[in-house]
C-alpha cells in the first residue's frame, strides 16, 4: 500500500551569485508500507536533501510529494510538523541524542509531542522500547556514558517510539565499526518489521545498501535504480550538481 509518493520532485537553490543550482531533478519514488529502500550516492549528491523532503523538513521547488494521496505542498507549517512527529522517525549518523538527558528521557522526547494517551504513558512506552533494543538496563545512562552502538540503539528506540510509518536513517552506521553497524542494522530491520514501518536508509556503504529490498542511487540529481550502469562523470568539482543553464561552471 502506497503512503508516500514523489512525482517529478526537484529541488533548486540559489547560489551566492544568484544562479540556480539544481540539487534534485525529476525524482520519482513510491514508498510502500513495510518497504526497505536504500539510497546511495557520493557526497553532495543530494541524499540529505532527498531525506529532508521525505521527512517533510523541506519542500520541493518542482513536482509534488503525496502523503496518503494528498499533496503536501499546501500543508501548513504546523501540519507538516505534526505529520512528521506522527509518521516519520529520524535516525542520524551522529545519533543526535540530547546531551545531559538519560536514555529514557531521550526516548521519551518524541512522546512529548503526542497529544493522546501516549503522552501520559510516555515513561512506560519509552522504557518498553529501550527494553526492545536491549537497553532496559541503561535507562538512566546519559549519552556520554554509552558506547557508539548503544547510542545508536537509543536513537533507534527514539525514532520508533511513536510507531512511525516511515523511518529515515541518514548514514545510521556511519559512526560505528563494521560489526556494530551490522548489529544495529539487524536491530533496525527487526523493529521496523515488527512495527510495519517503511525504512529508507541513506548510506555510503554498499554492504548496508545491499540489505534493502529496493536500492537506488542518486546521480546528477536524479534517482536511479542502483542496478543501472553508473554514468560517466565529468570530473568537475561541482559534479554531480547539474547546471540548468547548460554552462560548465
Amino acid at each position: 500500500m502506497t503512503f508516500l509518493e514523489l512525482r517529478g520532485v526537484g529541488r533548486t537553490v540559489s547560489r551566492p551569485d544568484d544562479r540556480p543550482l539544481v540539487i534534485l531533478d525529476g525524482v520519482e519514488l513510491v514508498v510502500e508500507v513495510g518497504d526497505r529502500l536504500s539510497i546511495v550516492g557520493r557526497s553532495g549528491s543530494g541524499k540529505s536533501t532527498l531525506l529532508n523532503l521525505l521527512g517533510l523538513l523541506d519542500s520541493p521547488t518542482e513536482g509534488e510529494i503525496f502523503l496518503d494521496d494528498e499533496p503536501t505542498r499546501h500543508f501548513s507549517a504546523r501540519r507538516r510538523d505534526v505529520t512528521r512527529g506522527r509518521d516519520v522517525g529520524f535516525i542520524f549518523q551522529q545519533f543526535n541524542l540530547l546531551q545531559g538527558r538519560t536514555a529514557l528521557e531521550n526516548v521519551m522526547t518524541p512522546l512529548l509531542y503526542d497529544t493522546g494517551s501516549a503522552f501520559w504513558r510516555r515513561r512506560a512506552i519509552a522504557s518498553e522500547m529501550l527494553d526492545r533494543v536491549g537497553l532496559g538496563h541503561r535507562l538512566s545512562s546519559t549519552p556520554d556514558r554509552l558506547s557508539g552502538g548503544e547510542q545508536q540503539r537509543v536513537a533507534i528506540a527514539r525514532a520508533l517510539v511513536r510507531r512511525p510509518r516511515l523511518i529515515l536513517a541518514d548514514e545510521p552506521t556511519g559512526a560505528l565499526d563494521i560489526e556494530t553497524g551490522e548489529i544495529v542494522m539487524a536491530l533496525l530491520d527487526e523493529i521496523a518489521t515488527a512495527s510495519d514501518a517503511a525504512l529508507v536508509t541513506i548510506t555510503h556503504d554498499p554492504a548496508i545498501a545491499a540489505l534493502a529490498t529496493r536500492r537506488f542511487r542518486l546521480e546528477k540529481g536524479a534517482l536511479v535504480d542502483a542496478a543501472a550502469p553508473v554514468l560517466a562523470h565529468e570530473g568537475a568539482p561541482g559534479h554531480p550538481f547539474a547546471d540548468p543553464s547548460g554552462s560548465d561552471s
Binding site: G55, A77, R78, D81, V82, T109, R158
Partner: peptide
C-alpha cells in the same frame, strides 16, 4: 540550536 532542530524533527511545532 541543534537540540531545537532535533526536537523539530520529532514533531515539535514552531509554536511549541
Amino acid at each position: 540550536i541543534q537540540e531545537i532542530g532535533i526536537r523539530r524533527s520529532f514533531g515539535a511545532t514552531a509554536a511549541r
